[in-house]
């Protein structure tokens, strides 16, 4: 049966028009477009400059977290610690500036370094300690949140001006949107153009085949978690910059939004599949739904219900499509 399916696959693929193929490959984008259209019709407040910028700002933290997570998911792992690591990095950065009285640029670099290191620790535990990534990062989720509380003693700490700048404006453009675009571009470049990026797809697609082809699997695993930590730190700085202070409970639960964004964007938790553009669309879908429901005065309680249904439906459609597609 299998043989028959694979033998006829090329013919099938040849018969599909480019337009249909694009739509099938970009289901989330189509969904986002339909969503936007519906909201445009439903309320005049949706398609306005200020609201769109607002959506961009709201999407920035989730999207940057999700970019980092995309590396991990492409390599067939999961990172539950991104929210906690974002908070720890932001708190560490604020501490460097406010408590250690070091220069603001050092606070930025320090914050990013804390995130990268936290991710690398999870990566080592996965690659060398043979812990499942779910467990390693669940542990890191707790450790990082705990350290955040230890450093801050449970109280907010003011951020450096350089960090606050990340939450401010650059001319007419809000900085979070600028950061979002740069981070997304860098992440896409890493995944598509670097050796390490291609290795991530190979490891996620078939770890053993990758290893037998000479791919340094353990180094790849450490790298994906370190990158996830770095992007989480950047998201943490964005978040604290907007508030001018690092909050001990910041970004709690954001890891679930980030995972949702990545999978809505078409990545497979089984690994080997995923794109940064998809993840961006996934994050925008989540934020646009929330924004639209707010504009329509739907209670935030119901919003959670809607988001949950959207996640299930989006991923459900995607896996049905995959099942019908060749391979």
């Amino acid at each position: 049966m299998n043989k028959v399916a694979t033998a006829t696959a090329p013919k099938k693929a040849a018969g599909v028009s480019p337009v249909r193929k694009f739509l099938a490959d970009n289901g989330a984008l189509v969904g986002l477009f339909v969503l936007g259209l519906a909201l445009f019709i439903a309320t005049p407040d949706f398609l306005t400059g200020p609201n769109l910028l607002n959506i961009g700002i709201q999407a920035s933290v989730i999207a940057v977290l999700a970019f980092g997570l995309t590396f991990v998911i492409v390599a067939a792992g999961i990172d539950l610690s991104v929210g906690s690591v974002a908070a720890l990095s932001a708190m560490g950065s604020a501490w460097i500036f406010s408590q250690a009285s070091l220069p603001g640029w050092l606070a930025v670099v320090g914050g990013l370094l804390i995130g990268t290191l936290s991710g690398a620790v999870s990566g080592f535990a996965v690659a060398y300690g043979r812990l499942p990534s779910f467990i390693a990062t669940l542990a890191m989720l707790s450790v990082a949140r705990g350290l955040t509380l230890v450093i801050s003693d449970g109280r907010p700490i003011p951020t450096a001006p350089e960090v606050s700048f990340l939450g401010g404006d650059l001319g007419v453009l809000p900085m979070p949107i600028v950061v979002l675009v740069i981070a997304g571009t860098v992440a896409a470049l890493i995944l598509n153009f670097t050796v390490m990026g291609r290795y991530m797809y190979a490891v996620g697609g078939n770890t053993e085949a990758a290893r037998l082809s000479g791919v340094p699997v353990r180094r790849v695993l450490v790298t994906v978690f370190a990158l996830s930590g770095l992007f989480a730190a950047l998201a943490g700085l964005l978040l604290s910059g907007r508030l001018d202070s690092a909050q001990p409970q910041a970004a709690a639960g954001y890891e679930l939004d980030a995972i949702a964004a990545v999978v809505i964007g078409g990545a497979s938790l089984a690994g080997g599949v995923g794109r940064i553009s998809g993840t961006l669309v996934g994050a925008l879908v989540l934020v646009v739904i929330r924004n639209g429901l707010n504009l329509l005065n739907v209670s935030s309680f119901w919003q959670q219900v809607v988001i949950g249904v959207v996640i299930a439906v989006a991923v459900g459609i995607d896996s049905l499509r995959r099942k019908n597609a060749p391979h």
């Binding site: 153009f193 670097t194 050796v195 390490m196 990026g197 190979a202 085949a209 082809s213």
Partner: peptide, 30 residues
């Protein structure tokens, strides 16, 4: 199970072992 990443393109599967050796400063020689 051990030879191929089945979901990845033919192109990538042929190139895994030469990816690093032909790269310039970490960028793939696409």
């Amino acid at each position: 199970a051990h030879g191929l990443v089945l979901g990845a393109p033919v192109n990538e599967n042929i190139g895994y072992a030469t990816l690093a050796a032909t790269a310039k400063s970490g960028l793939v020689d696409r």
